[in-house]
Design a protein around this nucleic acid. Structure first.
Lengths: 203, 203
DNA sequence: AGATAACTGGGCTGTCAAGCCCAGTTACGG
DNA sequence: CCGTAACTGGGCTTGACAGCCCAGTTATCT
């Protein structure tokens, strides 16, 4: 994992972070294959030497981007100020906040579409992808657990199952919506998944 | 679209088809980015001239592959001998037939994962992708329509909505399962989606 | 039989990108 | 203030791959 874990001064860490964020943005917009070192370099305002200093090869940079994206996803997928969606209403507002035209047209799920491309790239980054999805699942389960504790969901509701359903609806909906350049598929997928969660409710 | 629509003899069409199928196989296994002309050429047992004869550039070949994959998907996603799944049982057996370890490890959905990669490639193939998903949706709706006609689903069930839910569950589940190298996410996504369809039943 | 499609098997050019080396300057931390 | 990290800005090699041109042979259709 690069030179990272060595002694990095505050300045060094800032530069490294700037590189990662810049790369993440470019990759989101244009994909991995069409994002080369030079583009990252110039967009981040960094010389080539620095890029290869922090990230000796493309795989190490991609690993950092993947992790950064996963972190960002954790922050993104929570509607209540603190923590993941913990009520049907919160789930709905979570869904709606992702039903924007920009999200759909600009590249889908910032983590999922990247993961899809990386998985086909032959690079050894599957652990990072699996880890990201796992963390996301854990966060969703957290919210679902709160819902069950609050009596919104029945005690016998399978939270792991519901978390999978929500994630798949999100990722699949994003893919379909990207293809159709229209939020309709994503909306249907998310609303359907949430309605399914509701069938495990105490209503 | 290439030289295709010109007069193609039987032999010519056979060769063209062989190229497309070979390319589809290689791309499924290794992704678009890591499948070059030479690999297709040699695997299909065809000289370079022929490859560029039928497909002057990579985009035209990819377009043909995309269409071929969509056709294949139509054939694949139907459990009853003729036609798409038209009962809950048929949906279940459709799901199960896709829950194999190989499918998950070898590259996910043959159309969906290709579509994801192509969308990020910058090539102008979005129409082909949207068309493929549309045809798939139409086929799923066909089965759902039969189910409604047979009284399995209530008259007020929104079939378009259900088709979207099934498709998204499939695609999203495939993506998650590929990342985890495990069919569990896909199984949960599909079973959940089918259970959701059942909530619109006349039971 | 004549035209055209199908096909071989090279080779060549341009382009793009990754990884690497180097010689030097500037900032920071103990 | 000394050592090391941070940084500039080149240049260079190597490899991969797409698209193209060419000179010729074989099959197919009418």
């Amino acid at each position: 994992m690069s030179v990272t874990d060595r002694r990095l001064t505050r300045r060094g860490e800032a530069t490294r972070a700037r590189i990662v964020e810049t790369a993440a943005g470019l990759i989101y917009a244009h994909g991995v294959a069409r994002t080369n070192n030079e583009a990252v370099r110039s967009a981040a305002g960094v010389s080539g030497s620095q890029l290869s200093h922090y990230f000796p090869d493309k795989e190490s940079l991609l690993r950092a981007v993947l992790r950064w994206r996963a972190d960002a996803m954790m922050g993104l997928h929570q509607t209540p100020p603190q923590g993941p969606p913990d009520s049907i209403a919160a789930l709905r507002s979570w869904a709606d906040s992702n039903l924007t035209d920009e999200t759909v047209r600009d590249g889908g799920c910032s983590f999922g579409s990247l993961a899809a491309e990386v998985m086909k790239s032959g690079l050894d980054l599957n652990d990072e992808i699996a880890g990201g999805f796992d963390r996301w699942k854990a966060q969703l389960r957290e919210g679902l657990t709160a819902m069950r504790a609050a009596g919104v969901l029945r005690p016998d509701a399978d939270l792991e199952h519901l978390a999978y359903v929500l994630m798949a609806a999100f990722q699949g909906g994003m893919l379909l919506s990207q293809g159709a350049r229209d939020v309709t598929p994503l909306r249907n997928a998310l609303y359907g998944a949430i309605a399914y969660v509701e069938t495990f409710g105490n209503a």
